[in-house]
Design a protein around this nucleic acid. Structure first.
Lengths: 150, 150
DNA sequence: ATCTAATTGAGACTAAATCTCAATTACGCC
DNA sequence: GGCGTAATTGAGATTTAGTCTCAATTAGAT
């Protein structure tokens, strides 16, 4: 069992909540993902393990996991949230290709520091931030150039 | 009439679209705002001028204006888009107070440059970006400290 | 095994945004 | 100024992610 799952179980016990089979299935699937996923993805995977699992329970478990900080929710502006495991991963931002939709992670310490400077200057205490760069990825650029040459 | 409105009118003519009274009302109200607003705000203001204006027409005009680059749409993650005039304004990012919801604009050239560097390194051509810092504003920090002292 | 409060599933509900389509209207043409 | 027609509109149906309700179920303490 991953350490995130152990944290989840511990949290459930601490808070006097109950470790149901549904929560176990949903949390395991969510926390062991490599990349981001939607609530609907998670519902589908969960139902492969237990047909009866309801949409509501998936959303309720997602809330628990994000409140706990084990999952991070990502809004790519397409009308639904994505989620990704947050434990044991370094903070990162995302660069999104507007053509193929691919999402690449990146991290830049200098940007993070400058963000803190800006917040300081404005008298803000930073909780978190979201930086999203939108553009055209290498593959799509090359593909477009080829088309233009025709 | 503002230069944005003239651009809107010119665009309408160029494209063989029609300059309806509804479009004129909605565009004028949207383009002359100082701060961001929602589609529903704009619908309410438009109906003050012309009771019959429909929600659909407001959304359709918002699409025209954002496609044209005269408005920018902002997603603060509260389940609906905000809009703000984009013409004649410098690009800026937003810092949001999680307590009072206030939204402050800021701009940092160094961050912008670093973003371009990062994109270059990853082979991306940048189209646009969105940087949002979430935290506690000065006023709310002070209010919280006072409460803690009780 | 029993008890009880937390949890679940099913489906109703919400809210922003989009879509449909018959009725209206802007605008080029005469 | 009036005509014709294709763009536009309004009303309301629809979509979709997510939330809520509540009776039935169940985890976990005793």
């Amino acid at each position: 069992m991953s350490s995130s799952q152990e944290k989840f179980n511990a949290f459930i016990r601490e808070k006097g909540l109950r470790l149901t089979s549904q929560r176990t299935v949903i949390a395991r699937l969510a926390l062991n993902r490599e990349t981001h996923f939607t609530a609907d993805d998670l519902l589908a995977w969960s139902r492969e393990k237990d047909k009866g699992i309801s949409r509501a329970t998936v959303y309720r478990t997602l809330s628990l996991l994000t409140d706990l900080g084990l999952l991070e929710s990502l809004d790519f502006g397409d009308g639904r949230l994505c989620y990704e495991p947050a434990e044991g991963r370094n903070h990162h931002d995302h660069i999104v290709c507007l053509h193929c939709g691919s999402i690449t992670e990146f991290h830049c310490n200098e940007i993070e520091e400058l963000q803190c400077d800006v917040a300081d200057r404005l008298g803000f205490r930073v909780d978190h931030h979201s930086l999203r760069i939108y553009g055209t990825c290498k593959d799509c650029s090359e593909r477009t150039e080829c088309n233009e040459q025709r």
